[in-house]
């Protein structure tokens, strides 16, 4: 596999999830590692010919048929034009890159997934992987917050999983839109507040977090108060991973490179690094 050469992919579906976010499904070569062998939390580089390339976390489950699910917010130089793409349009992919969530270390543990905003994308991938081997893990809890109810992604899917008893789900929004009284399943509170009433066993719980940098410090201090040690807390960091292979020099966090050493780091690995959490 040549990690520098994007292989052809075709956009097979673009499903708008919110006003600015879509679930994009791509199809590439069957059995290619870029689609078939990644860990949740890893990322790929998606090219839109003529516009450029950007790093994006996997949002789905590995497939042998070459299909890849990605959750994309259309706010960037490449993701903007991607918004007007139609099924059949050409794209290209490289990956998988980086380190994902440590599934092996999670065996036998209770798992607490915490997602803020678009951070649900890699955690959906993690959740799907965990559910595929449900018997390997203890409790599965997902705390998920967004700005407002209209920005919550995959709610139907998540509520369905909750109803089937597959996951303990708590949703929250920062504020309610004027027209809503608020759906019954959703609280109005900042994401870290959900931790206040959480009943967990710190010695057998691992936390997997992805969200905007602004929520990390508060989440981390709350989890520490609950008794979780730093090696039980994993965070996915966002940086400008332009090449994905440790060469372009943009994505260092301290002296670690997000693209090859991350983007998922344990809190212990980030100790003492100024600005690591945003």
């Amino acid at each position: 596999m040549n990690r520098d050469l994007p292989i052809p992919a075709v956009i097979s579906a673009i499903r708008p999830l919110t006003v600015d976010t879509s679930l994009v499904t791509l199809n590439t070569e069957p059995h290619h590692p870029v689609a078939s062998s990644f860990l949740p939390g890893q990322f790929l580089e998606l090219s839109l010919p003529g516009a450029g390339e950007f790093p994006v976390s996997y949002c789905g489950f590995p497939s042998v048929d070459g299909s890849i699910e990605l959750c994309i917010r259309h706010i960037g130089h490449v993701t903007g034009p991607l918004r007007t793409a139609v099924p059949g349009d050409a794209a290209a992919v490289r990956g998988p890159f980086g380190h994902g969530f440590p599934l092996l270390a999670y065996v036998g543990q209770d798992l607490l997934l915490i997602a803020g905003g678009l951070g649900i994308a890699p955690l959906r991938s993690l959740l799907l992987a965990l559910l595929a081997q449900r018997e390997l893990w203890g409790r599965l809890t997902l705390l998920y917050g967004a700005r407002e109810t209209g920005a919550l992604l995959f709610t139907d899917e998540l509520l369905e999983l909750q109803n089937r008893g597959m996951v303990e789900l708590q949703l929250t929004v920062d504020h309610l839109e004027h027209c809503f009284d608020g759906p019954p399943y959703c609280r109005v509170a900042l994401l870290p507040v959900l931790l206040d009433q959480l009943d967990l066993e710190p010695d057998r719980t691992c936390a997997a977090i992805c969200g905007p940098p602004v929520v990390y410090p508060l989440l981390v201090s709350r989890l520490r108060q609950l008794g979780l040690s730093d090696d039980r807390i994993h965070l996915s960091l966002e940086r400008r991973m332009k090449c994905g292979v440790g060469r372009c020099g943009h994505c260092a966090v301290g002296t670690r490179l997000c693209c090859v050493d991350g983007p998922v780091f344990s809190l212990a690995e980030l100790a003492g690094i100024e600005g690591a959490l945003g």
Binding site: G50, A51, G52, H77, G80, P81, T84
Partner: peptide
């Protein structure tokens, strides 16, 4: 111009 033709603005 080449970018505009494909809906891409310059960086």
């Amino acid at each position: 111009l080449a970018g505009l033709a494909r809906g891409v603005l310059p960086v």
